[in-house]
Design a binder for these strands. Sequence first.
DNA 1: CTCCTCAAGTACCGTACGGTACGGTTCTTG
DNA 2: CAAGAACCGTACCGTACGGTACTTGAGGAG
Lengths: 220, 220
Amino acid sequence: MQSASVSEPQGTSEFVRDEDLTPRQQEVLESALALLVEGGEKALTTAKIASASNCSKESLYKWFGDRDGLISAMMAFQGSKVGAAVGQEDLGSASAFKNYLVRFACELLSVLAGDTSLALNRLAIGQASNDASPLGPLLIENGRGVIEAKAVGFLRSAEQKNYLTFDDARQTYHVLYGLIVRDVHVRLLLGERREFVMKNFERDAQTAIAQFYQLYGVEE
Amino acid sequence: MQSASVSEPQGTSEFVRDEDLTPRQQEVLESALALLVEGGEKALTTAKIASASNCSKESLYKWFGDRDGLISAMMAFQGSKVGAAVGQEDLGSASAFKNYLVRFACELLSVLAGDTSLALNRLAIGQASNDASPLGPLLIENGRGVIEAKAVGFLRSAEQKNYLTFDDARQTYHVLYGLIVRDVHVRLLLGERREFVMKNFERDAQTAIAQFYQLYGVEE
DNA sequence: CTCCTCAAGTACCGTACGGTACGGTTCTTG
DNA sequence: CAAGAACCGTACCGTACGGTACTTGAGGAG
């Protein structure tokens, strides 16, 4: 069992500490995610989650507090898998790094266009009007944050190796992001068909990186 | 009154033809939008709309069919105001056009960061998981579509006047969009504070346009 | 075997919402 | 002025959901 049981309400009244989830609880979160991907927030009712995962509603409330707690747990749970998704960078040579950037671009697009990512983003955005909703920040931290941190890291390294030249790594990353993603993410969030928005992944990624080098590459 | 009354169900069973809305109906849509901006989709109940606009629920259903019809009408109504927002382009000289691009960038950011735009996008995105929901396409057509059409237009003109050089105006516009908007839109949709995401409008717009010229500007 | 804990399944409660029906009032039209 | 339509306000209905309580059964410890 997890540390924060009924006995200690704890300061922030959290139910599941970070990542010490029972396998059973992970199963539940998994099927909840599947349910969300399938039918959107409307389909994410406590009854459906319970029946889909062969678990009682009472257990849901015992483990996650309430529906919002469960959703937060879903976000954190999914976020814990994102970090490993982006492969290790390769700064071996200028051209190797450029190739890596293309791979990074493809990876980024794949992640953003993934069913689960889209579903969670839709959920968080749908709740974002409510100021008290922690989902937006949670998603930013768990998804966007880790990728940005990683990217800023290898951009700085590339600059030190004189593959690129810029002032502010963060701003530079945002430009890179803009060149890669454009309005694709929002269009997907709005429900446009994936094949329609993203015909030819690879080519788009390559042009994006080429343009990025036009802006920040070092002349030789 | 509008043409499609109870007498004629019409092919698509639409209730309000495009834009022949009674002033009263416009008032209702206006307060519904205010309600949505205020409290998100959760606050957009038929009862609240009725009471907020001093109108009976019965009238709502008579005019708009059902809740979805009303929301669609809100989108179309708001969309009808977007077109005029973006000022007229100025192709008088190369530098005038560049200045206009900066203005365009600012305008685009203003529109995307507007309360109403954010609220409607959140609403449409929240429903996008439902395949049958027409809100996403509706929003894309009414918002994104008109701006893109306009932009593609003046990009083509600029290319003919030899201010810019490119192959595909559409793709070029998407790059321009990416440079201007980056991940700002999604972050705002997720609920991040406007002041935090968009500190210094003007400067960002100028850098974006400068970078755009690095990619597509003609040398002289 | 017995007790105890945990959790599944189900039944239940209060509430809130979408949608409908109705009485009363105003406004238009002849 | 009189007849009728439009419409507001409200009460109402069915349903669906979040959350709680209770019963049953399966393991685990003594």
